[in-house]
Structures are given as C-alpha cells and as structure tokens.
Computed example of a mutant assay.
Amino acid sequence: MDPRRLLFLSELARLGSMQRVADELDVTTSTVSQQIAALGRELRVRLIEPDGRRVRLTPAGRRLAEHAATILAGIDAARRDLGSDEPGGTVTVAGFATGIRQALIPVIRRLAADRPRITLHVHEHEPPEAMAALAAGAIDLALVYDYSLAPLRVEPSVEVTRLWTAAWALGVPAAAGPQAIEPVPEPAAAADSPATLRQFRDHQWIVNSRNTADEDALRIIASMADFEPEIAHRADSLDLVQDLITAGHGVGLLPADGAVAPGIRLLPLTNPPALLRAFAVTRRGHTQWAPLALVRRMLVEHASRMTEGKTAVRTAGPTAG
C-alpha cells in the first residue's frame, strides 16, 4: 500500500471532508478522491460512500483508517530515529478560556520555537461544545474540565488524559456583615462546605452561562445544606462574575488560588471540595498521529510544571515584604 494514499484516508477520517483534506495537504479535492479510490481498488474494498453532498467512511474505511494512523505513526517514528524530517501538520484544539491561557498558549510558544512545522489552531469552547466538535471530527483535541462532584461523561471512543486539578471557593462580597458570614477560625473554616453555602441560602447565585458543571457541583453541595440555590445570573466570563459579586448582585464559585477584585472574599470549600479537573480528550487511536501526540505530551508536561509550581509556593508560604 502506498503510504501517501493511506495519509489521504487517515486525514479524511480526522478532518471529515475531502475539501478540508485538500486544504490541509495543499492538493485538489479531485486528487484526494482519486487517491482514496485507488486505495480501495488496490484492496478490493469500498472505503467511502455518499453522505448527502459529502462522503463518509464505510465501516471498512474506518477500520483501515485506524490501521493507517498506526502505519503512518510508525513511518514518522522511523524517520525521527534516522534523523530525518520532523513531524508537521495542523492540530486543531478546542478548549475553555482559562485552560487556553494557562496551558495551551505556553505550548503554542514552545511549538513556534522548537517545532515550527506544527501549527496549532485554537477554538474557545466550553466542554459540551468542545466534546461535540471532537465527536464530529471538527477538532483533534478537546481541552475540557469538570468538577469532582459532577464528573464528565465520556464515550468509549475517546481517550481522556488528566492534566491538573484546582480548588474552587465561594466568592462573596467582602462587605457582607457578620449576620451573613459567621467567622470560623482557620483551618476549621475550610471544613464544612454545606455550612458555608447555607449562610448564603437567601442570596442570589451566579453560574456559568455555557456549561452546567459548576451549577451541578453547587446544587449538590447546596442539597447537603437542605436548600435550593436561586440561580439569578449566568455569565461565561469570570471577570463578569466578579463584577456581579462586587456590585452585590449575588455569590458564586471562583478559583481558590486566583486573584480577585477588591471587595470580594473567598470562602474555602473542602468538605466536600469543589475541585475543578482539567483534561485533554482525543479520539481513541488518533494520538498515533505524531503532531497530535506531541501536543498532548506538551500539555501534560506543562500541567505537571504548573502543579509543581503551585505546590512549591504553598510549601514555601508567604514571605515578609
């Protein structure tokens, strides 16, 4: 089998349309069609079939595409072992804004410096949007999150790689009086999350407008405190959440180690904890494609350095200034 024909088939499985394959490989759609047709004749099997105005892989085509990814990855590995060309291509990633800022942009910088043949295209999406795009073949990697109290549901067709975990806290107006916030000595202040939320049962609450993960976690803790929060505001931007809290229009979850605006107080939540967990999700078998495998590995490495840095800061503690 001609590896280049396998490449056309593998890219069709990854990108979902002949036009996108043609754009990626800088050829015409006619060339893509002809090469895949030639591969099918060589193997005496039908690899594609009509799907409206487009085409889709047949079951045999999908199976061969999986083999193609393995074969092409082996060829890439052999080339690297012999000191030949570096892997190259365009990897499309969809992720949530905070994850893109914290983890993906540093990876983009490293790729530009060390792997210029690999290009990253970035789409900002909340997890449900990113997972839908991954399932549709529109992206190569989804950078998503869930909360430990509301785990992400995934299909067997994907591979999930844990990146980092971050504690979230309850953001409330700093000016809230003693009747609203009962002072609890440290470290006991971090002991009872339901009791912390219960103090704000009569307040309005702010949750994400494009994902229900934080709302699900919030409702679970509130149920332990025997109340149902009044969801009054939905905002995708954490800056907007902080503005609403500062203005006295509600309370909501915020990163426990993040910077907050003057006028906001963070109350720890640890029993049970409100832990945000970030993941890299790919379609099963697709990380045999060298550029995608490299991007995922770099994300894991950067997440490990992020975690080590936070641990070092907590261990060292604050310094006098």
Score class of each variant (00 low, 15 high):
202 D>A: 14
63 R>K: 09
229 P>F: 07
192 D>G: 00
144 V>D: 02
128 P>H: 04
222 A>C: 11
201 R>G: 03
287 T>A: 14
299 L>I: 04
47 L>N: 13
171 G>A: 12
2 D>A: 10
266 L>K: 14
252 G>M: 07
13 A>G: 10
138 A>R: 15
89 G>C: 03
272 P>W: 15
167 A>W: 02
122 V>S: 10
209 S>T: 12
240 L>R: 15
17 S>W: 04
111 L>C: 06
78 A>I: 11
78 A>C: 09
219 R>I: 05
289 W>T: 11
38 A>C: 07
105 I>G: 00
83 G>F: 08
221 I>V: 15
260 V>P: 00
137 G>V: 14
104 L>Q: 07
292 L>G: 08
226 D>H: 13
198 R>Y: 00
264 I>R: 10
42 E>M: 05
84 S>K: 10
170 L>A: 00
224 M>K: 06
144 V>G: 04
46 R>S: 12
292 L>M: 12
212 T>A: 09
167 A>P: 06
26 D>V: 13
242 Q>C: 10
58 T>G: 04
121 H>I: 05
102 Q>I: 07
185 P>D: 07
257 D>C: 06
47 L>H: 09
239 D>I: 10
274 A>K: 09
252 G>C: 07
266 L>W: 03
291 P>T: 15
24 E>C: 05
165 T>V: 11
167 A>H: 12
166 A>M: 13
205 W>D: 01
261 A>H: 11
227 F>E: 03
42 E>N: 02
222 A>Q: 03
43 L>Y: 05
193 S>Y: 03
283 R>Y: 04
73 A>D: 13
210 R>E: 11
118 I>R: 14
71 I>V: 12
174 A>L: 13
64 L>M: 10
312 A>M: 05
199 Q>R: 13
289 W>G: 03
20 R>V: 04
104 L>N: 06
119 T>P: 06
133 A>R: 08
277 R>Q: 14
210 R>C: 02
299 L>M: 03
7 L>K: 12
158 V>T: 07
69 A>G: 08
41 R>D: 14
129 E>S: 08
214 D>G: 01
300 V>T: 15
147 Y>A: 01
73 A>Q: 13
132 A>K: 14
106 P>V: 12
81 D>S: 09
158 V>N: 02
172 V>M: 01
4 R>T: 07
274 A>P: 10
37 A>H: 14
97 A>C: 04
316 A>G: 10
305 R>K: 08
195 A>H: 00
259 A>Q: 13
